[in-house]
Amino acid sequence: MSKPDFKTAVRQEEAYLRLVYPTADDIPGCISLFDTYLSCNVIRSQIKSLYRYGERPVCGPKLEDFKFCLSLKSLHPEERRDAWISRRAEWWAHRRLGKSSEDIWDIREEPLKSFPTPITDEQLGIRPIE
């Protein structure tokens, strides 16, 4: 399965995000984004990230989202929605086209033959009835 080019991925993501955020009221507010940034820095998130990934979480992008939101305050609500969708679409496109576990594992088109192997009565230690 081949990956689309960046422009195609951005267009696909924009189309999807327009469905997710149908009105300007549906995009996250600046307070919500600031809360997300703060929650990234709490001890629980720090420990969870250390445990899962062996490093502290990267909170900078969450702060950038908050600052971007503040820069949109003077725009008309529909322009704000369009700007938010464009930014998120690019973020998702980068994420989709970047490295992931799918680069390591091949997707099977059909299941393996004879897998799993059926367990026989003999393996279970069941004797046939005579």
Rank of each mutant, 00 (worst) to 15 (best):
F115K: 08
D26V: 06
Y51M: 04
E110K: 14
L70H: 08
A93H: 10
D35W: 01
E55K: 10
P57F: 00
G60S: 11
E78P: 02
D103S: 13
S49Y: 02
Q123E: 14
C30W: 03
H94Y: 15
D35V: 04
P116M: 13
C40N: 07
P111E: 05
D82G: 10
K99Y: 09
S101M: 13
R80Y: 07
I107K: 15
K113F: 12
T120K: 00
S74M: 07
I107S: 14
S39M: 13
T36R: 06
R44D: 02
A83H: 06
W91A: 11
L124A: 11
I119S: 01
K67H: 13
K62Y: 13
K113Y: 10
I126L: 14
R88V: 07
G125S: 03
Q46Y: 03
F68M: 12
K67E: 14
F68K: 06
I104W: 12
R44V: 03
D82C: 08
L72K: 02
Q46V: 02
E122N: 00
G125K: 01
R88A: 12
R44Y: 05
D35I: 05
W92Y: 10
L124S: 12
R88Y: 10
G29H: 02
E78M: 06
S71I: 10
Q46C: 04
P57K: 05
V58E: 09
H76I: 02
R80I: 01
C59L: 03
Q46D: 01
P61C: 08
S101W: 09
Y53H: 09
R44L: 05
A89Q: 12
G125N: 04
F34S: 04
W84H: 04
I27L: 08
D106H: 15
I107F: 15
S100K: 10
K62T: 05
W91P: 03
Y53T: 03
S101L: 13
D121N: 14
D103N: 14
D82E: 15
D103Q: 12
P28M: 01
Y51V: 05
D26E: 10
Y37R: 05
I85Y: 07
Q123P: 07
R56D: 01
